[in-house]
Design a protein around this nucleic acid. Structure first.
Lengths: 192, 192
DNA sequence: GTCTATAACGAGATAGAC
DNA sequence: GTCTATCTCGTTATAGAC
């Protein structure tokens, strides 16, 4: 097939909208903002995503899929649990360096105003992450590279919410180091 | 002087607006929402708080002051560091039980869209909390009721962001127990 | 698929009477 | 201090031409 000088329009819309949501929140960005950046009219946006709720759902679905791929890649690129946890934390650091919040973390703040399908997607994102983390944690405990007590799933929930909170606060201060200190503490407590 | 029934109109406005922000976020609530609940016209709201930014600043100022009083009361009502930390966590649990997010936690999600004075207030809230916590943590370490390594201020920052994140995620799931599990883990790790 | 044009509504905010 | 009335602007969304 011939090369397409135009990147897929829907994908460009999602790229811009994703950043706007991560920076401003779901209720603070508008179709007009997206249209201006994508250099298209507002009406054309509605052709790709009929409603804001549909756009929101698409954003979450894509974010979850991308995160799942990243988690799978961690399993390929690393061999022990500690390295996997570090790589996991690096995913968050990368987002924060762009002065963005985790998409689903910021949507959690808007949670009560979201349509049902978006809510479900946000919770599914957290559950995805916790399931993956619980696997890595359990693996580390069995291999004696990590130490902790109680269910791995409980610890996984703790890690996810601590990282989300650390992103939230560190971004406000504009200090990525604040986030990195939290990561260090979390990892440190796992080898005691 | 005579009792002033007018004086508490401002307070009633703040009560309603505070709840709306905590539940919906700063950009999702409107003067119309507040007016309807307070049973007053929108125009009258502007008499008390000329702009939404001014209302936001007043919300933060009052929230900070109330929190400071609560922290001072913890010092009166408890005698050791562990009890103080538990009482501190209970402040958050009380908010979460009402299906609300911490006011400043939710404003942190909206941070990039906030006017300067509101941003400063949000950061000051976090700093207030961390300063208080650092004092309690250091006190506990000296009295051997708490164990941890490194600066108390770093640990205080960790605790604040973990609690904010735990509230954020637990509220989305509608599970206060999720938050309580995080509190238990944080406290448990401090006596090891 | 993108456009112009516009509908329909709600937002924050103001003027001025009472 | 509260009201009615209004302004101006931005919002999501739709109709229909090209």
């Amino acid at each position: 097939m011939a090369s397409r000088p135009m990147a897929d329009t829907a994908a460009r819309i999602l790229d811009v909208a994703e950043r706007l949501v991560q920076v401003q929140g779901f209720n603070a960005f508008s179709y007009a903002d997206v249209a201006a950046e994508v250099q298209i009219r507002k009406a054309s946006l509605h052709h790709h995503f009929p409603t804001k709720a549909a756009l929101g759902q698409a954003l979450i679905a894509r974010y979850r899929a991308r995160f799942s791929r990243a988690l799978a890649e961690i399993h390929v690129g690393t061999s022990d649990a500690r390295a996997r946890l570090k790589a996991y934390a690096r995913l968050y650091t990368g987002v924060l360096r762009k002065r963005r919040m985790c998409l689903c973390g910021v949507l959690a703040a808007d949670f009560e105003t979201l349509p049902g399908p978006m809510r479900q997607g946000v919770l599914a994102f957290f559950s995805d992450n916790e399931a993956w983390l619980a696997g890595v944690l359990e693996e580390g405990r069995r291999g004696k590279t990590l130490q902790f007590q109680g269910p791995a799933s409980t610890l996984a929930a703790f890690v996810v919410s601590s990282l989300e909170g650390a992103m939230l606060v560190a971004r406000s201060y504009g200090r990525v180091e604040r986030f990195e200190a939290v990561v260090k503490k979390l990892l440190g407590d796992l080898q005691r």
